[in-house]
């Protein structure tokens, strides 16, 4: 694990405000999951890299967020699924390979990120703590880097 990787992970584990952040793709998911779990926080993570359109993006996000098998697979259903993450604890959502949908379906990707951003704000308003991390080797502007 590089020094730079150590630093962003240290900042995350030290506690950051609710919201959306960007981070490099290291460490690997398993190491990241372990580090977050050691803090006693919940982590939902996975790759969205293969998503190339709205349908595949929703499918990937639904799987990462543990959506019910019969969920609606539409934007309003994604709002519902994101809001249904367990309350009352710190939850970290890690999306890997975000450069894929950001390039192949930028409008759909922007909608998905906006939904997640809105959800972090709603959660914060009720005292819950939701952090979403977008990981990619490509620069991803618009959100704070960890």
């Amino acid at each position: 694990m590089s020094m730079a990787t150590n630093k962003w992970l240290e900042r995350l584990l030290a506690g950051v405000d609710p919201g959306i952040y960007v981070a490099p793709p290291e460490p690997d998911r398993f190491s990241l999951d372990d580090a977050i779990a050691e803090r006693g926080w919940r982590c939902h993570g996975g790759s969205v890299g293969s998503a190339g359109d709205k349908a595949t993006l929703l499918e990937a996000l639904g799987e990462i967020l543990d959506a019910p098998t019969d969920w609606g697979r539409n934007w309003d259903a994604l709002v519902d699924v994101a809001r249904s993450l367990p309350p009352g604890e710190r939850t970290i959502v890690v999306l890997d390979d975000v450069g894929g949908p950001a390039k192949s379906c930028p409008n759909d990707w922007a909608t998905a990120v906006d939904i997640l951003a809105t959800t972090t704000e709603e959660a914060a308003a009720t005292g819950d703590h939701l952090v979403v991390i977008l990981r990619s080797s490509d620069p991803h502007s618009g959100y704070l880097a960890l």
């Binding site: 539409n74 934007w75 309003d76 709002v79 249904s84």
Partner: peptide, 14 residues
């Protein structure tokens, strides 16, 4: 449910 009375965002525009 805690989600009840939440704002429906009408993201699909239906």
């Amino acid at each position: 449910y805690r989600q009840d009375d939440g704002v429906f965002q009408n993201r699909e525009g239906i």
